[in-house]
Each structure stands twice: as structure tokens, then as C-alpha cells.
């Protein structure tokens, strides 16, 4: 009997060890592994989206409309300029407009839900709940609202999930769509946001006509430290700047010829001073384009060095940049 018991005990112990090891392997402990842990994490995230959808229906659909299409309050769906900040400038224009890191949709949405909005930031378009009281109520319990942090997290997850409409295959289309909105909404007052979009839509226009845009001149290799005054480099740089100005001039004129739209003359635009001063071109590419502008105008004129100003080309640029 003792031997039988010892055998059963020993085999059971082996079984426990084997099953535990199997569970451990199933967990997919390695990073990036498609184990149970990764699946569970995804599952919980999406359950949060589910309950966020239910909560949106309960609390938000009243003003933002079913499926966040927008009514009295702005849309929050994939057409809204909240999403796809990683796709490039202009797509998450709403976040840029509000001076928020355009990659951080979640943070923006969460804070907006939590604190609400005292006044509509675009009263011409969206009245909000009640202009006399508050455009959007504060939902966080911290500010007297009804929602707990976990509920706001679910809601924000639901809104962020509209990003699912913008998969990588549709990046271009989304970018274009975002740009059209950006130009429609923001062009008159804040041209610095839209320069990239003009460029983008021009490329679309070129393609529609079956034409190829002119090739961008290549910048001379950056000199080593202390060699910026090297005459050879200075000459190459001046040549490059001139080429760039020519390039932009031909790019925009070709765009117009293809039925596209060049940026408006900055003289007619009235930039909001605070915003205009604080926002330079944006991405690295934009700065390269902006070099043309700074080359012609002395620095510190207060006009941002954006491709919009740079690209207007020729004499117009000179006049524009000299205007303080």
C-alpha cells in the first residue's frame, strides 16, 4: 500500500509541475509573444471600449449624437480632427489647434471629459449644451460630475477607438480628408497649421492630372562645426536657397495649373498674434522649406517661418516677411 501511495504521490507531483509549466508557456511571458497575457490585455482594453460605447450612449449621445457624429456639440468620430495624430501634420488638427500633443488623443479626450469646457471654443459652429451655463459640463466626480475615473477611462477609450477607422492602408485618404477640413475651418485665421495640407492637396491635384510635381532640390551636406563660414558651403547654401525658392514657385504654379490651390497671400491673412508667435513650422521638413523665408527676411520679424510664407514666392514673399 505504501508503495502505491508513494507512486501516486510522485506521479501527481510530476503532473502538477508539468501543468504549471504548460500554463507558464501559455502565458507567453516573452515580450511581443502572442500568449494568454497579451490576449487578455487586448481583451480588457476592448471591453473597456464596449462599456465606453454604452456610457457614450447614456451620457454623451444627447449632444454629440449617436456614434459621435456631432450635433449641437462637435463630432468626435474619425472625421473630427481628433484622431490619427501619428499620420502627420494636419490630421489631428483639433489637438494642434488646442495646443495639445497631437499624438495624445487619449489624454486630450480624458481631460476634456473630466473638466468639461466652460465656453465653446468654436461658438460659430457648436453651441454646446447651454451657452448660458457651460458648453460642456465637467463629468469627473472631482469637479462635481457623475463619473468615476474608470468610467472616464472607458469613455476616452471608446472615443480613441475611432482611430480604428484610419488603418494604415487608408492613411493617405485620411490625411487628405483631414487636410480639407483643416483648410476649411482654420485657414483664414491660422495659416501656419495648413501649409503642409496645401502641399499635400497639391500633390493630390498633380496626381489627378497625371502630372509629376517638380523635384525638390537637394540640400548641401551640413558642414562640420565651425565650418559654416566656409566659402564653398556658403556658396552651395545660397545656390540651394535660390533653387528652393524656384522650386516652391514652380510647385505652386504647377499646382494651380493642375486645378489645385496655392496658399493665400499671407498679407490678407490676419494671424492671431499669440498663436502665430508661438508656433513655428512644425516638423523637420517644414523647417527646411522655411529656410527660404528666413534667407530673405531678417530673423525676429515676428512672422513665423512657415512654408506658407516661404512658398508664396518671389516679391510677394519679400513684402510679406518684412511686414512686422
Amino acid at each position: 500500500m505504501t508503495r502505491v501511495e508513494i507512486t501516486i504521490g510522485f506521479l501527481s507531483l510530476l503532473g502538477v509541475i508539468a501543468i504549471t509549466a504548460a500554463v507558464g508557456i501559455g502565458e507567453g511571458v516573452k515580450e511581443g509573444d502572442n500568449g494568454r497575457l497579451a490576449k487578455a490585455a487586448l481583451g480588457f482594453e476592448k471591453r473597456s471600449v464596449e462599456s465606453g460605447a454604452q456610457m457614450f450612449d447614456q451620457y454623451c449621445a444627447n449632444c454629440h449624437a449617436f456614434n459621435a457624429a456631432g450635433a449641437n456639440c462637435p463630432p468626435l468620430d474619425e472625421t473630427s480632427g481628433l484622431h490619427g495624430g501619428d499620420l502627420g501634420e494636419g490630421v489631428a488638427w483639433r489637438l494642434e489647434e488646442m495646443h495639445w500633443d497631437r499624438a495624445d488623443v487619449y489624454g486630450y479626450v480624458y481631460s476634456t471629459i473630466a473638466a468639461g469646457r466652460m465656453e465653446s471654443s468654436r461658438p460659430d459652429r457648436y453651441q454646446g449644451l447651454d451657452p448660458k451655463i457651460m458648453a460642456m459640463p465637467a463629468w469627473s466626480q472631482q469637479y462635481g460630475g457623475p463619473l468615476r475615473p474608470d468610467q472616464m477611462k472607458d469613455l476616452a477609450n471608446y472615443v480613441v477607438n475611432f482611430r480604428a477607422y484610419l488603418p494604415s492602408a487608408k492613411e493617405e485618404a485620411a490625411y487628405e480628408k483631414g487636410c480639407r477640413q483643416v483648410m476649411e475651418i482654420m485657414n483664414p485665421s491660422r495659416p501656419q497649421y495648413v501649409s503642409k495640407c496645401y502641399e499635400k492637396l497639391c500633390v493630390v491635384a498633380y496626381e489627378a492630372k497625371g502630372k509629376t510635381p517638380p523635384t525638390m532640390p537637394e540640400a548641401p551636406p551640413k558642414p562640420a562645426d565651425g565650418q559654416e563660414k566656409d566659402p564653398a558651403y556658403v556658396a552651395a547654401k545660397a545656390q540651394y536657397d535660390a533653387n528652393l525658392t524656384r522650386y516652391w514657385a514652380s510647385f505652386w504654379s504647377g499646382c494651380k495649373a493642375a486645378g489645385g490651390q496655392a496658399p493665400p497671400d499671407p498679407i490678407t491673412a490676419t494671424p492671431l498674434p499669440a498663436v502665430a508667435a508661438s508656433t513655428p513650422g512644425g516638423t523637420g521638413e517644414a523647417t527646411v522649406a522655411g529656410d527660404a523665408g528666413t534667407a530673405e527676411a531678417p530673423a525676429g520679424t515676428g512672422t513665423p517661418a512657415t512654408p506658407a510664407t516661404a512658398a508664396a514666392g518671389g516679391g510677394a514673399t519679400a513684402t510679406a516677411t518684412k511686414k512686422p
Binding site: K39, A40, L42, G43, E45, K46, R47, V49, E50, S51, G52, A53, Q54, D57, Y158
Partner: peptide
């Protein structure tokens, strides 16, 4: 009303 997500497992 309920939301049903493909990946909620």
C-alpha cells in the same frame, strides 16, 4: 444596448 467588440474575448 450593448457594445460588442471583436477582440473582447
Amino acid at each position: 444596448k450593448i457594445g460588442l467588440h471583436r477582440d473582447s474575448f
